[in-house]
Amino acid sequence: MLDQAKGVYIVAQTPFKENGEIDLDSVDTLTDFYFQHGASGLTVLGVAGEANKLTQAESVAVAARYVKRAQGRPVVVGVSHSSVAQLAELTALVMDQGAQGVMIAPPGGLRTEQEVLGYFDAVFKRIGNVPVVLQDFPFSTGTWMSVPIMGELIARHAQIQVIKEEDLPSLTKITRLRALPGRRVAILTGNNAMFLPLELGRGIDGPMAGFSHPEMLSQVYALYTAGKVGEAHDVFDRYLPLLSYENQSQWGVAVRKEVLRRRGAIRHAGMRTPGPRLDATDHAEIDRLLQRLARDLKDAG
């Protein structure tokens, strides 16, 4: 069950062909790449997965392909939508394909805590007993949830088994969430894993984040949970320049996909329109960052 989730849940990209069509063969190679580099599970059709650019049929096809290639390892599917009816329909379809659960964020436009509670009451009435990751990402959604309201949602809805926490500052909110009374839920964190070692120190169960070098996420998690805190920070620091370069919203997704292409994980790095396109200067910066990373890793042995 998702309430036992721990480790690294990689936020997966959606690969496209040069003509903009879904590249399902690259879904296979990308899935293999993530698990070969230490992923415990995958989260697909999130913001970084360009979910808002897919049709309903494409969303189901992508989710189904990830689930099939994962071969029983957990796959969580983002289904957030302002329409409860569309959210419920996609939830049923991806759960039928074998997803372990779905990720839901509140839509924009909810202005009061009562509206947040009412929205999720309607959602859970429609989707039934489906394991849910509650995504707290106000930078993207525009809707802020307080810790008491998140605690109320957990108390009301047993389907909520994980919180994906990516409000800022994440650290103080994690501490307050961990102090909530009642049943324990797993806490995984996003924000491109920019604060991963510190968040592990606050009691999270792992990252739910994307990065072109998922082995960093899995190494930091393994070292930190083994009590090798200093070593975990050292590994994190070596990758930090590239990590921060990728932490630039949708432009950063374009960078990440280019690095994944260079590493052989996908065939084509393009994003579906509308989306940024990298120029020669961008590619030169990526070259420099990767060269420095390779040097630092060699120096570290």
Rank of each mutant, 00 (worst) to 15 (best):
V255D: 12
G201M: 10
A193T: 03
A284Q: 15
F211D: 05
A51M: 11
V253F: 11
E285L: 13
Q86A: 14
T225G: 02
V75A: 10
T141H: 05
M208F: 03
V76A: 09
A39S: 13
V162P: 02
A155I: 03
G252D: 06
Q291D: 15
N192S: 14
V229H: 03
G275H: 02
V229Y: 03
I286H: 05
R111D: 10
G301E: 10
E50T: 02
A155S: 13
G142P: 02
G227M: 07
G210A: 14
A105Y: 05
P276Y: 12
P148Y: 09
D237E: 13
I127F: 11
N192Q: 12
F120L: 06
M194T: 09
A155C: 05
G109M: 07
A179S: 08
Q13C: 11
A63C: 11
A158H: 13
R176M: 08
T273F: 15
A265F: 10
Y66I: 09
S249I: 07
P207G: 05
R176F: 00
V133M: 15
Q4C: 09
Y221P: 01
A254P: 01
G227A: 08
G78Y: 07
R272W: 10
S146C: 03
R295G: 11
G78I: 01
Q36E: 15
V94P: 05
G142T: 08
E231M: 02
G151K: 04
A158V: 06
V76S: 10
G7K: 07
A155V: 01
L240M: 11
Y245R: 06
L243H: 02
R267V: 00
K257M: 15
D234N: 07
S83H: 05
L243T: 09
A39G: 12
Q97R: 15
T273Q: 12
S140H: 12
A70G: 04
V102A: 12
D167W: 10
G72N: 10
A294Q: 13
G301D: 08
L54Q: 08
